[in-house]
C-alpha cells in the first residue's frame, strides 16, 4: 500500500469537510473493495476518510410502503433484517460471510462494480438513493462502469426501496468470488415491471423488451423468446459475451417463475 493519512469522521459534515480539503481523498465504507485496491497499489490516495464511526448511516428501517437501508448497513444486516425477501436473498449471496460482516450497501453502489449484486437491487426495485444533499432516482444513478451520478464529495446516506408486490433475484455466481457472472432482479410494484441485469454489461441495465413482455403477461414463457444483444457485453475467461446473453434469459425466466 502507498501511504495515506487515516481519518475517522464523527459526522457526515466532518467527513465531507475532510474529503473536500484533501487533494485526493477516498471515503472508506466497509473497505471490501477499497482496501484490496489500495493493497494492490491500484489506487493512491492522500486521505482515507472512514465513515464507520457515523451512527446515523447505520441500520435498516421499514415503514409501511418502503424500506430504508442506511448507507453503512452491512450485507449481513440486510440479509437478516430486510423485509423484502428478494433483497434479503440478494444480500445473503454477496461474497462470503466475513465480507458480508463488513461490506456495505453504500460502498457497493458508490463503487458500481459491473458484477456487483446491489446495483441490480437498486435499479430492479426502483430505489431512491439519499445522499448528503439530494435524492437520486435509481434510473439516474448508475452512469457507467465504476461510475455513478455521485459528486466528488457526496456520500450515500441511505437507500430507500419501495415495497414491491413481488420480486425475485437470481444470479449465476462466479464459483470463486461469488460475484455475479449474470444476475437478474425482476420486480412488480404497483403494476410496473422492472428487469435489471448485472454482470453482463459494463454497467447494470434494464432489459426493456422483457419488461414490456412481462407487463403484457407475467410468465416465464413471455420472455423465453427474447434475444439479448451481446455486442457490448463483458467477455472474459469466466464467460463469453454470448454465454452471458444466454444467461440473462435463463436467470430472468427463473426469477419470473419464482414469483408467478
Amino acid at each position: 500500500m502507498y501511504s495515506f493519512r487515516y481519518h475517522r469522521a464523527a459526522s457526515i459534515e466532518e467527513a465531507k469537510e475532510l474529503h473536500t480539503t484533501s487533494d485526493e481523498g477516498a471515503y472508506l465504507a466497509g473497505g471490501m473493495t477499497l482496501i484490496p485496491t489500495l493493497k494492490q497499489r491500484l489506487a493512491d490516495v492522500d486521505d482515507v476518510i472512514d465513515l464507520g464511526g457515523i451512527e446515523s448511516l447505520k441500520g435498516v428501517m421499514t415503514s409501511g410502503t418502503s424500506m430504508k437501508v442506511g448507507g453503512m448497513a452491512v450485507h449481513n444486516e440486510v440479509a437478516a433484517n430486510a423485509t423484502i425477501d428478494a433483497l434479503r436473498h440478494l444480500a445473503s449471496g454477496i461474497g462470503d460471510p466475513q465480507v458480508r460482516n463488513r461490506g456495505t450497501i453504500g460502498g457497493s453502489i458508490a463503487n458500481n462494480d459491473p458484477a456487483a449484486d446491489y446495483p441490480a437491487a437498486v435499479l430492479g426495485l426502483n430505489a431512491t438513493i439519499h445522499t448528503n444533499g439530494r435524492t437520486i432516482g435509481a434510473d439516474d444513478f448508475f452512469t457507467g462502469m465504476f461510475d455513478t451520478a455521485l459528486g466528488d464529495s457526496e456520500i450515500v446516506t441511505a437507500v430507500e426501496f419501495p415495497m414491491p408486490s413481488r420480486a425475485a433475484y437470481i444470479k449465476f455466481p462466479n464459483p470463486a468470488s461469488r460475484y455475479a457472472v449474470v444476475g437478474v432482479m425482476v420486480s412488480e410494484t404497483n403494476g410496473n415491471v422492472r428487469v435489471a441485469v448485472t454482470g453482463a454489461g459494463t454497467c447494470v441495465f434494464r432489459a426493456s423488451a422483457m419488461e414490456e413482455a412481462l407487463t403484457n403477461e407475467f410468465a416465464a414463457e413471455s420472455i423465453s423468446g427474447i434475444s439479448i444483444d451481446s455486442s457490448s457485453f463483458n467477455s472474459d475467461i469466466h464467460a463469453s459475451a454470448e454465454y452471458r446473453a444466454h444467461l440473462v434469459g435463463v436467470m430472468a425466466q427463473r426469477a419470473v417463475s419464482q414469483i408467478s
Binding site: 487515516y6 475517522r8 472508506l28 473497505g31 471490501m32 482496501i35 484490496p36 482515507v48 472512514d50 464507520g52 449481513n76 460471510p97 466475513q98 465480507v99 460482516n101 463488513r102
Partner: peptide, 13 residues
C-alpha cells in the same frame, strides 16, 4: 463478535 478477514481491515478501523 463478528468474523472478519483481518487482512482487509485497517488497524485504525
Amino acid at each position: 463478535g463478528k468474523a472478519v478477514k483481518a487482512c482487509t481491515v485497517l488497524t485504525a478501523q
